[in-house]
Design a protein around this nucleic acid. Sequence first.
DNA 1: GACTGGCACTCGCTACAGTCGAGTGCCAGG
DNA 2: CCTGGCACTCGACTGTAGCGAGTGCCAGTC
Lengths: 340, 340
Amino acid sequence: MGLDDRKLAVLRAIVEDYVATQEPVGSRALVERHQLGVSPATVRNDMAVLEEEGYIRQPHTSAGRVPTDRGYRLFVDRLSRVKPLSPAERRAIERFLLGAVDLDDVVHRTVRLLAQLTRQVAVVQYPSLARSSVRHLELVPISTTRLMLVMIADTGRVEQRLVEMPGPIPADDVTDLRRLVNEKLVDTRLSETPPLVQALVDEVGPDLRPAMATLASVLLETLVERHEERIALAGTANLTRGGLLDFQGSLRPILEALEEEVVLLKLIGEVEESTMRVRIGDENEIDNLRAASVVSTGYGPNSMIVGGLGVLGPTRMDYPSTIATVRAVARYVGDLLAQN
Amino acid sequence: MGLDDRKLAVLRAIVEDYVATQEPVGSRALVERHQLGVSPATVRNDMAVLEEEGYIRQPHTSAGRVPTDRGYRLFVDRLSRVKPLSPAERRAIERFLLGAVDLDDVVHRTVRLLAQLTRQVAVVQYPSLARSSVRHLELVPISTTRLMLVMIADTGRVEQRLVEMPGPIPADDVTDLRRLVNEKLVDTRLSETPPLVQALVDEVGPDLRPAMATLASVLLETLVERHEERIALAGTANLTRGGLLDFQGSLRPILEALEEEVVLLKLIGEVEESTMRVRIGDENEIDNLRAASVVSTGYGPNSMIVGGLGVLGPTRMDYPSTIATVRAVARYVGDLLAQN
DNA sequence: GACTGGCACTCGCTACAGTCGAGTGCCAGG
DNA sequence: CCTGGCACTCGACTGTAGCGAGTGCCAGTC
């Protein structure tokens, strides 16, 4: 385990060069392009050690070295220096996000921005309903037996769902139902609503009981249990950069994974704090993504976390600037949400 | 242009074999696998004519023949026999779509179903607002100066948009506004609303005038002009079938095109009648899709068209069954919409 | 006149041998 | 502990040769 400073410098140099050139890097090129102050032979010895420890490997005998997932991990944890965003980039972010008119627009713009800045696949989770509070519930009669239930959350999310009532429902009843659900549920977190919803059914008078029961079941089913998370995706075309060398030649598994909402949620939706999360190659739990890396973080207003966002790219990615960009975008989006 | 029956039969055989095997097809294989009743030499002569006319070509001298875009076109127009769906497929469609609870769900299921059945990229346009009528407009106070405008269309579409009012707005005014816009706009087609919206502003009393003006501009901007179309996409992973032979080796342009909503709309959104539309390779106006074919059609309740749907795949696709599937799915979705 | 068998020819594909060079591991010496 | 030197490895590239699928054409047949 004896990795002295120079060996670490060598590893850093290898990662940086490989990321830049996409080609295995040899000892000579290394001393030429970095001021290591030693000869290629010395570097070779260091490389041998690094390889033994599993940080780098040779694609074929007698080619240059390439970082392993473990090598990237060490690089990210201990070796990378943060690359602050250029003022131009900061301005671009601001300008791009500023024009957004509502949540849909914010998410849409964010995901495109992220894809463009990092030149990778970007994923943005809508503010999670579980972490939102009810701001208002609206019931709109569609026909005699149908209502449209519209829920507006404090995070800006709006969800609607058609409710098929057990029987014809007069306008007065709709008014009553609307008042009741709003009284009980407004300002409570969605994750805490189920018992309250249940209570509503129990408390209501017998004439409204069946209607309220139906409403309650739709509320529970749609807004809490199922389908509650939404996700936006952009930049899949970026997967084809690096001409099929990345992702060991096949985009198939990646594209498949990206089609599954569940998978995407796993990627970016499990954030509790606003720390950056970097998963490199093998560290991904999803088999289809073993050839990729994911950089993600949570975002939200005022240091609260309401959702996740991040990017997915080849393990051979520019971690320092990707991390910086993801962090910056998350912060801007959070600020934007705080303003509303 | 003297293409007698046998030459057409040869072309059909070439298309069918090439689609099935993905390999250039030669004269011997052709007579073996189809009952053409002539010798390979004769077929070769026919092939020479077909090539001269531009229906087939040779990838390299002395390889088999491959259909050109023009060849596929002729095949689709005159040679393909419709492949009716199997009862199993019909049942699958029905079962899959039946469980849908609302429009979002219908569209989502449809696009996935289509991708799965055709094993290609599926695109479904939400019912176009321009072709929908207003069923109800709801105004929900969010704060003293903000309203959430929710529009419910007869096609099931629900759109919402945050409205920033010029000043604080009392509850009574909200009620008035709500009543006014509903009175004027309900049951009119969205494409016909602009003059009515303008009239609303002119007619309203001076106290409500500024609020109504703001509301009107948001209505016009969001619901009519911009952003009105929504699109769902699925099955991009299917692009990787056929191992990079399709799409002349690069998915890049295709993926890029699929990211542009405008492009997708052009693909499937310009349908006036419910006829099938097949665009093969070069026939596509979008340069990035010159290597692909698009099969699309309109859908809607009761022979009305409210939106488009379709699939995108390699020019070398099984046109007869793709066309049959797209048509069948469109019909089922239309029926489903008619029921609501 | 249309079809067929035969035949020479084309050309992509594969296998194989040879060369080149980047890069390594190791060793002896400073 | 570092360095220069050296032998070695092995992938990438090149050129050659043989194979075979498939063609175009021609002379012969019905």
